[in-house]
């Protein structure tokens, strides 16, 4: 039952990734694309967590934590770039 649930979850999250990618490519504005990137990295965390449950290994936790941190910093940097025209002042 658990493996079936994980398979369905994989399909749903993969669909979420595809939808985010579509928004990333379509735009239409810069904030839309940044938001899509932001969603994409959260979806990646979901995929990694599912992979960890699927393979029964907690090794993927560190990768998920790193993606969470780097993704946040990336989003903030891109927003700051739009707001100020510069990242490091």
């Amino acid at each position: 039952m658990l493996s079936l649930a994980v398979s369905i979850a994989f399909a749903l999250v993969a669909a979420a990734v595809v939808l985010s990618l579509w928004r990333l490519l379509k735009g239409p504005d810069k904030p839309d694309r940044i938001l899509a990137l932001d969603t994409l990295y959260i979806n990646t965390i979901a995929l990694l967590v599912l992979l960890g449950i699927h393979l029964g290994s907690s090794l993927y936790f560190e990768a998920a934590l790193l993606i969470a941190m780097m993704g946040f910093v990336g989003t903030v940097a891109l927003c700051k770039y739009i707001l100020r025209g510069d990242i490091i002042e």
């Binding site: 649930a5 979850a9 999250v13 669909a15 979420a16 990734v17 985010s20 928004r23 979901a46």
Partner: peptide, 17 residues
């Protein structure tokens, strides 16, 4: 829990799209 989580993740991206 896994199904609920995956469903919400999907709905979030659906809203984005």
């Amino acid at each position: 829990l896994i199904l609920i989580g995956a469903a919400f993740t999907f709905v979030g991206s659906l809203g984005l799209a």
